[in-house]
Amino acid sequence: MSQTAPSFIPARPFAPAERDAVYRAIHERRDMRHFSGGQVSDEALERLLQAAHHAPSVGFMQPWRFIRIRDRQRRRAIHALVEQERQATAQALGERADEFMRIKLEGILDCAELLAVALPPGRQAHIFGRRTMPEMDLASAACAIQNMWLAARAEGLGMGWVSVFDPAALGALLQLPEGSRPIALLCLGPVPGYYPQPMLAEAGWAKRLPLRDMCMDEVWQAG
């Protein structure tokens, strides 16, 4: 069977200033937990969602669904779910529990916009790229979130990914259909500034590992 011939646009590199702006967004992006209220304009929010929606996805399945949450009572209920899981995580961490509890994990009640990201039902119908690796729906949705994160930095906004919650409880609160799965709560909005390095590094929880420890030749090499 012959393959379809692709069409191309010219593969010209970006101008140096444009290229540097891309790398700047990558290196200055932060998982933000401190917000300063304010608002995100409808136009900016549309640009961010368009950036997410232009992410790559395995088999072009586009497995991302965004729920905008503006109701304060629902936000408080979500915050309570996160706090419940925060306490459970602290208990599971054992001797690092106190250290963990001192770290701010989210800005659900402070951010201008709160978005939930969910995988839709019916994902099993997408076989292309998922037959042996069904988790590629999650990987694809993570690409959409990363696109939004970088776009938020370019807009001068902060974004934080909250994953400390019980998926079943959050799904029930958001009335997700059977087969759907929440994967993220995104806190978005103006921030007082950006952390000079990842917040968990600032807090001493972990540090960035050297790139050389992540790269190998040909086969897996024990370090």
Rank of each mutant, 00 (worst) to 15 (best):
W220A: 08
I67N: 00
E218L: 10
P210S: 00
V22A: 07
E95L: 10
D166A: 12
D166F: 03
F8G: 03
Y23F: 15
A206N: 03
A116I: 04
R29Y: 02
M199V: 11
I69D: 00
L49I: 14
P198Q: 04
L119Y: 04
L185F: 05
V164K: 04
Q175C: 12
E99P: 00
A17S: 13
S7K: 13
L174Y: 10
G94F: 05
E106A: 13
M216E: 11
A25N: 13
E95W: 05
L170W: 04
F100H: 12
D166I: 00
L186V: 03
A142K: 01
H54V: 01
S7H: 14
G179L: 10
L48G: 07
F100M: 03
R212A: 13
D217Y: 10
S2V: 11
S7D: 12
F35N: 05
G160Y: 04
V22Q: 07
L105Q: 11
L48W: 09
D217S: 13
A55Y: 09
S41T: 14
Q175A: 15
L200I: 01
R12F: 11
L49R: 09
G179F: 08
R86P: 02
F128Y: 12
E95G: 08
A154V: 06
T4M: 13
A90S: 03
G37D: 06
E113A: 01
P16K: 09
A168S: 12
P63T: 09
C143E: 05
S180A: 15
W220R: 03
A142M: 10
E178S: 14
D71A: 13
G171D: 06
R131L: 15
A52L: 03
E28H: 14
E43K: 13
Q87L: 10
A21S: 15
P120M: 07
I183R: 05
E113H: 02
H53R: 14
D217M: 11
E218V: 07
E202Q: 15
D20P: 06
A139H: 13
G59R: 05
H27K: 12
L109N: 10
R208W: 04
M216I: 10
Y194P: 04
P198E: 04
H34N: 10
L209M: 12
A169I: 02
